[in-house]
Every structure is written in structure tokens, then in C-alpha cells.
Simulated assay, not measured.
Amino acid sequence: MRIKMKPVYLAAAVAMAFSGSALAQEVVKIGFSGPLSGGAALYGKNVLMGMEMAANEVNAKGLEVGGKKYKLEIVSLDDKYNPSETAINVQRLIQQHKTPAVLVPHSGGIFAVQAFNEKANTLLLAYTSLPQVTERGNKMSVRIPPDFTIYIDPFIKVEMAKFGKNVAIAGADHDYAKAWTAAFKPKWEAAGGKVVAENPMSYNKATDFYSGVSKVLQDKPDVMFIGGASEPSALVAKQARDLGFKGGFLIMDQAKIDEMAKVIGGLGPLEGSVGVLPLAADPRPNAKLFVSNFKKIQPDRDPTSEIGLNYTAVHATAIAMKLAGTVTDGVKIREQMDKAFKTLPAENNPQEIEGLDPKGGTIANVLMGVVEGGKIKDVSLRTANAGK
């Protein structure tokens, strides 16, 4: 038996079909592939929190591009800090979710994605301070944090003057930490110091660092160079203190002092440490405004640098879409990213990113923090990143 549909119902059905299609097209997605489980999960979740906070604000104000309104959505996939999984995830984000931009917060995953993102016309938002990310010439990449090499000399000056010239290297063993170590060692030695021990450890796979820390402490260092994700970095520092280490910690910028303190019950074990100044301790007006706004949403915690910088990156990407007049053309969006960063409102730019250098790295002033008397103090590094 054939059912004949009346014209009015047929028209309604067609309208509903086109309405559903139109609604689907009004969502623009930014992808995320990072560690949401394993030893670096806290790090990945902080990155994602900043992205989602920005997306919520963009949607609350309304995102209009080319005369059409869109909803911004963050699509997140867990890669467990494994670059091969990152590549698979990003391919899925591009093919299944049609993301014009993806954010990856670790250098191994970023390098894996750089093998194909240009051909896919996909903007790669690279959350790593590794300078090689932009030096490779990938025209579809933006490096979100400033180049980490600007920290090395002032960090060395503080720790060497306070504790001595013998350093033990006990950082993580992933690509980013290896790059930090390779840049740090000659600088330490050029300043008159000596590397007395070197034992990189798998921060993202282990929770007990007793044997690795014991090994480097046998050579009686004055300073320990440590760093990876904040949570395992904190456990390394605590293990060193438990084993009697009295010296200082030079903490590479991936680990954040305030996040480490939460893991080990306070700043006491981190006395004498030097690292990136936490966002909550940043005295600049933009940072104070962001911290105040963040606490309205999360009153029981402080925002981290990862939260702030990736929040800014998503806001800048939304502005770049408006400037480009498209939510699908990654090439045109990338072309507008420098201008987008430069036109960010103060409340959306807590770390005061000034724009991009010619290679696609952010230009910003960074602050250094030291732990003294159980408090994190701003020692005003304020070194402008010249886009190395």
C-alpha cells in the first residue's frame, strides 16, 4: 500500500531536513589532541580547560563570520602523550569533524602533525616553547608560548649564585625535555658550572623515581635540573628532598611551580626553586583581570599558564576567522593570526602576547619566579622574546 503525503506535510518535512542541515553547518570545531590520561593528564586537562573556557565566552558573545552566526565547539581526543596516537587523532579530527584548526600541547605530537597539516590546509596551534617547531618552516603552524631559550640564562644565574656550580640533570626523557637539556648544558658550562650527573627519566610513565633520583644524588649536585609535566616533576622534587637533597631546583618551563606545590602539599619542598612565574602571581593588569574572571567560574583554584595561554589561542583563532571571513579555510585563518593576537581585548590576553614573529612564534614578555621563604616571588625577568 502506497501512502500519499499531502503537500503541506511534504513541505514541512523538506523544511525540517534543510533546517537540520543548516544547524549542522553553523557549528565550527577546533580540535584538541593531548594527554588526558597517564602521567601528563593534569597538564592536558589544564590546556583543554583554557580552550573550553574561551569557546564558552566566544559563544556567549556570539561568533559571526561572513555574515553568518556560528557556535564554536572544542573536540578533544586523548593521545596519552604518544605522538603516533596524536597523528591518528588529528587525522580523525580533520576528516570526521572538519576542523580547520587543531591544538596539540606536546612537541612529539606537534612534529607528527607537521608531516601532513600543510597538505591538509589545517592550522596547527602548537602549545610548546620548543623553537624548532617554527624553525622547521611549517607555514600552517603557530607556536603559542614564547621560545623557551629565553629562560635559560636568567635561571642559571639565580641557581648558580644561590647554590653552587654542580648540576645534576634529572629531567624527563621526551623530545621536549631532550631539547631543553641540549640547550641548557652548554649554557651551564659556559657560566663556569659543571654537569656532575645526567639521568633522564620517563616522567609520563613512572610514579616512583627513587632509583633515578638516587643515582644523580650520588654525585652530590648543588642544583638539580628537573622538568616535564607538573605532576611527575613534583614527585621527582619530593623524592629528592626525601633522600636528603638540600640544593635548588631549576625547573624547565613545562612544569609549573604552583601546580607542583599542589601535588606535594605546599611550596616547602620547592624552596630555592626557579621557574616560570605562575599566572596567579603575575602582577600585570591583564593577568589580574583574567585570574579574577577565572575565579568566578572556578573559585577553589588558580588558573595555570597552560589555561591562560591556550584560552588566548582560541580567542585569537576566533578573531582570525572573523578577519578571514571563513571558518573552513585554514590558510586564510592562519594569515590573520598575527593581526588577531594584536587585536585581542585585554581580558582575553592575560600573558600579553603582542603578535607573531615572521616564523609563527608568539612575541611576549615572560616573568620568572623563585620560591623564597615559602612564597613564589616575581623576580621580573621581563625578557622580550624576539622570535628566535
Rank of each mutant, 00 (worst) to 15 (best):
A346E: 15
L279C: 04
V196Y: 01
I257A: 10
A22G: 14
A182C: 04
G248R: 04
R136M: 10
A346D: 14
E52V: 00
D300N: 15
D329Y: 00
A364G: 01
E198M: 01
A161P: 05
A191H: 12
S273Y: 03
M1W: 09
P7K: 11
E64H: 09
M140R: 01
P145S: 09
A240C: 06
A170H: 06
Q95I: 08
T149I: 03
G50S: 05
A316L: 08
P7M: 08
S230A: 11
V274I: 02
S76K: 09
K162Q: 09
Q336L: 09
G164K: 04
P221T: 05
N365I: 12
L309C: 05
F32M: 09
K332S: 07
N286H: 10
A179I: 03
D219G: 09
V263S: 04
V213K: 07
D78Q: 00
E85Y: 08
G137F: 00
A24R: 09
G228A: 14
V371P: 07
G244I: 13
Y127L: 07
R92I: 07
L381A: 06
R301H: 11
P154L: 06
I3H: 14
V213D: 06
L381W: 10
A346P: 09
K80R: 14
Y81C: 02
K194M: 14
N56L: 14
L267S: 00
T312A: 03
V223E: 08
L124I: 06
N286V: 00
Y127A: 11
N89S: 12
M5V: 15
P221L: 08
H106N: 13
G266S: 06
V14H: 08
I88N: 13
Y70D: 01
F209W: 05
I363A: 08
N365S: 10
N121C: 06
V8G: 12
A340T: 06
A179D: 12
G108A: 05
N56D: 12
P285K: 02
D258N: 10
E26G: 15
G66R: 01
A112C: 07
